[in-house]
Simulated scan of single mutants.
Amino acid sequence: MASGVGKNVFITGANRGIGYTMVEELAKNYDVKRIFAGCRNPDGAESLIALKNQYPSVHLIKVDVQDDISIKNAAEEVGKILGEENLNLLINNAGIAENVFDENSGGNFEAPDRDYYARHFDVNIIGVVMVSSAFLPMLKKAAAEGERSLLVNISSSMASISIGSAYKILKNGNITYSLTKIALNHYSRLTSKYLESAGVIVAAIAPGWVATDMGSQLPIAGFNVDPKYSQEKPLTPEESVQPLMKTIAELKSENSGSYMNRFGEILPD
């Protein structure tokens, strides 16, 4: 299909789950010239390597969102490959939700662990800030030249204060992931205002409850949740990513700053 996302895309956390499936969906079904699949250890990303061997549009890029030098190097490598061409879409997908079923994880109310909280904020929000900053000149250049220019941050329905507070909290009361995604939403909205005059469209999109290594850990099953937002079971990555990519492809300037679900429906803060 016609791209709608532009010719060149960079995705973090692309070695598994939603990230991998987005790379696969773009390679199979979208008219995209280059898909930069970012992950910490490209040499060990067997599924991505197999996808790269099948689709020449896929490029593996080493990036650790907790390492500023790694982020800088990734941006430089992408820039060299692009040459005079532009980056049209950055998807900040990398994220963590560690050991949320473990009562001693350190993410709860009564016995919080500073390092646990710091690690999640470092990946889920600070990493997004640093990656976005490194690739922003490329996105601004694309917009200035009249091309698609999109910054998409993968959020969560747990980033909604009104929806998220209605979900069943785990018995250990792990709230860390939800807090990081709330911060991500606010970052997305602030960034959209900052980039409004530059023509870069920014959106935070919740992919739904997805059966991935991370998503399977999250306490999404809810009570007193509007049926519009509730799920009885997790989605497959494909069930999430196909409508999600369609929504990204259809983003317009008036959508910038929005927090939405995978179908493009606006979610409450």
Rank of each mutant, 00 (worst) to 15 (best):
G264H: 13
A143G: 10
A204R: 03
S253N: 11
E84Y: 04
N124A: 03
P268E: 07
V131K: 08
H59I: 11
A198N: 09
G38H: 04
G208F: 05
A45T: 08
K141H: 04
I201A: 09
G6C: 03
G79V: 09
S178N: 04
A45Y: 15
F101S: 13
G222S: 15
V128C: 07
E24R: 12
A14E: 01
T12C: 05
R119L: 08
G95K: 03
E46G: 03
N29G: 01
I61G: 13
V202T: 12
E77T: 14
A94M: 08
S157A: 11
E103K: 13
A198F: 07
D102N: 13
P137E: 09
K233S: 12
I11A: 06
R114L: 11
P268F: 00
Y167C: 12
G127A: 04
S47T: 11
Y167F: 08
I201N: 06
R119H: 11
S256L: 09
F263N: 15
A143T: 05
N15C: 05
I205V: 15
S3A: 08
K181G: 01
K141C: 00
F263D: 14
P137A: 12
E24N: 06
I169V: 05
A94R: 11
I161P: 01
Y55C: 02
N73P: 04
D122K: 14
S192L: 09
Y116N: 08
V210T: 07
L190E: 07
A144Y: 00
L267G: 12
V65L: 10
N29Y: 00
P243W: 01
D122G: 14
N93G: 09
N92F: 07
H120A: 02
G44A: 15
I91M: 11
H59Q: 12
E76C: 07
K28I: 00
F121Q: 07
P243V: 00
D269F: 14
N153C: 05
G107E: 02
E110D: 10
N261K: 05
L87C: 04
A198S: 15
V78H: 10
I161T: 05
R34F: 11
S132Q: 02
A221P: 13
K181V: 02
I266F: 12
M1G: 02
E265T: 14
K246H: 01
Q231H: 11
N255H: 15
S192Y: 07
I161D: 00
G38P: 09
P42T: 06
A203I: 04
D68F: 10
F36E: 03
D115N: 12
E239Y: 06
K233A: 08
G146Q: 07
A206S: 15
E84K: 08
I169D: 13
R34P: 11
I154M: 04
F135L: 11
E239N: 10
F101P: 08
N99C: 05
A183P: 02
N88A: 01
K52L: 00
S240N: 02
A221I: 14
I266Y: 13
A203G: 12
L195A: 12
L87P: 01
P227L: 14
V129L: 07
G13C: 04
F101Y: 14
G208M: 06
F10Y: 08
M138E: 10
G215D: 02
G257Y: 09
S156V: 13
